[in-house]
Simulated scan of single mutants.
Amino acid sequence: MPHDWLAFAKSLRAIAQTGQTYTDNKYELERYRQLEALTNQMFAVLGDVPIEKIEQLIIPDKGYATPKVDVRGAVFDEAGRVLLVREIKDGRWTLPGGWADVNESPSEGVLKEIFEESGHRASSPRLAMLKDRSLHPYAYYSPDHIYKLFYVCTHEGGAFVPNNETDAADFFARDALPPLSEGRTLTVDIHECWAFAASNAPGIYSD
């Protein structure tokens, strides 16, 4: 059975972060900082990328190490097409979304992300599913442990507004999806949101 070196590196990074938070010994603090630097080197080797890129990817964090939360919104028009946005970074399409913010519920956050990235307004977010990113085949690895929350929302209208993250927004039919930014959204994510929307399930309370 192959070893999951990425999971090992994530665990070591969590130990280093938590250790820096709770130790009051300056020698232990230095060792935890060294461990953190070593885990960055491990991520660079595992991803075959320069360590500088790893350091840019890692979200600065302090305190007890916990997973990050990514919220994504599936908005469907009257024809049943899904709203996608095109990422400037890779030129591919994804469900609008991003990191959950402090002092904001996930459902509030997803509505904000939809508007900021697409220019379209949405309402009535229903939590369709929660995924542990590490257990699914997203295109690139992340040094962070991430939970992905997918919401199905009601379309309230709007039009694309230029912004610094996306350069287009459009609706797509189920059998005509564009090339996806698979580090953010997989085809199966969209299909599962479609199925949830069709079921008229009430969703899971998430505030």
Score class of each variant (00 low, 15 high):
R86K: 15
D77W: 03
E78Q: 15
Y140W: 04
P137Q: 06
V71N: 01
W194D: 15
H155I: 00
T166H: 08
I146A: 02
E87M: 11
T187I: 05
E192H: 02
G73T: 03
E52H: 02
R86C: 03
L46P: 09
Y147I: 01
A7P: 04
E165A: 04
P2E: 08
L84C: 03
T21Q: 14
R126Q: 12
L57T: 08
G80D: 04
V82I: 07
Y205L: 13
G98H: 05
V188G: 01
D48P: 01
P50C: 04
H145D: 05
K62F: 11
D101Q: 14
T154C: 01
L12T: 06
G158T: 02
A65M: 06
D132Y: 04
A195I: 10
H191S: 00
G19R: 10
R33F: 01
T94W: 00
Q20N: 08
H145N: 06
F160L: 00
S11N: 13
W194Q: 15
P67C: 02
G80T: 04
T166Q: 08
L12G: 13
Q17V: 12
E116N: 11
R126Y: 09
V102Y: 15
V71C: 05
I51M: 14
A195T: 14
Y147C: 01
F172N: 00
W194I: 13
P202K: 13
T166E: 11
N40H: 15
F196M: 09
S107E: 15
L12A: 15
E52T: 10
R126T: 08
P162D: 02
P179I: 01
T21V: 05
T21A: 15
R86I: 06
E36T: 02
G183S: 13
L135R: 13
P125L: 04
G63A: 03
C153Y: 00
E36F: 14
R72N: 08
N25C: 07
E113A: 14
Y147K: 05
T154N: 03
W99D: 15
D207I: 07
S123D: 15
R81E: 07
P2D: 06
A14E: 13
L84W: 03
N40S: 10
W5A: 13
G109L: 07
A74W: 03
E30N: 14
N200S: 14
I51D: 09
I59R: 12
A195R: 13
D175N: 14
V71E: 06
K10P: 06
S11M: 08
I88Y: 05
E30V: 08
L186C: 06
A176Q: 12
N25W: 09
F171A: 00
S181G: 09
T39Y: 07
L83P: 02
F172C: 04
T23H: 12
